[in-house]
Amino acid sequence: MSSGPVSEVRGLPLRVLPGRGPLRRAVRSVGGRGSLFLVERHALVYRHTWLVFVSGVVEPLFYLLSIGVGLGKLVGSVHGPAGTPVSYAAFVAPALLASASMNGALFDSTFNVFFRLKYEKLYDAALATPMRAGDVALGEISWALLRGALYAVAFMVVMAAMGLVYSPWALAALPAAVLTGFAFAAAGMACTTYMRTWQDFEFVTLATLPMFLFSTTFYPLSVYPRPLQFVVECTPLYQSVVMLRDLTLGTVHLDLLWHAAYLAVMGLIGLLVAGRRIGKLLLR
């Protein structure tokens, strides 16, 4: 190897990490600054097609109006997390926010990623530049998360306007919604790298639809027998529903950190797997 001067790369300092082994590999495979460039690219594309954002904002609102408000008229009030009665709309709204964050993040990180990976060859082009596989993974996940955050803000504004926010802790529901988006975006992208055809996306629906319906979105956990309660408590969407509901209703307790930790770990694993898999698929 040449002993010449170390080459200088404009604006992209090489990350030099001492040692070897799995930790180093893991850290290296997480994206860096390059991920921002992919986010910029998506923002440029969506400037032309801002309409798709509208549907993502409107869909959970329709659910809120039909089920929260409409069905809520029949239900009246239910027992909130603190045992005190709350309006049905206030009970359902945070759960809808949770599933909207999940769906928004998943849409980008599954269908769109698959299209860019297999058909558009977007990542092949990016990886011919100083971008790394980890940058691609982090960029996609960040974008999905940003998009989810935008939906969450719009939804929270409507919730507040409808009087469904009971506590200033609701402000913390926003980062919690973003965390939800991160967890599902990362897991979704990781799964997408294993998919072979569009048919495989049925598995995403198969996983998310029951979560949406049964993760105490529409009724409290107490309606289930204990064994089923345990199953529901293990699902990722349940963590998000509990967190968001407790925050918007102002029932704050330390257990919330466990739910947050669950989602953070899920997101980190997804991020690492997605980066490694993109590298494996494209850098052959």
């Binding site: 992209l12 460039f37 690219r41 440029l44 092949d124 082009a125 530049t129 100083p130 971008m131």
Partner: peptide
Amino acid sequence: PQEDSLDVELTVRENLLVYGRYFGLP
């Protein structure tokens, strides 16, 4: 590359912009 990997969702000029950004160019 052998097969064009242009960004078909962007314009001609935007392709140069985005690709240049991948290199971290201002």
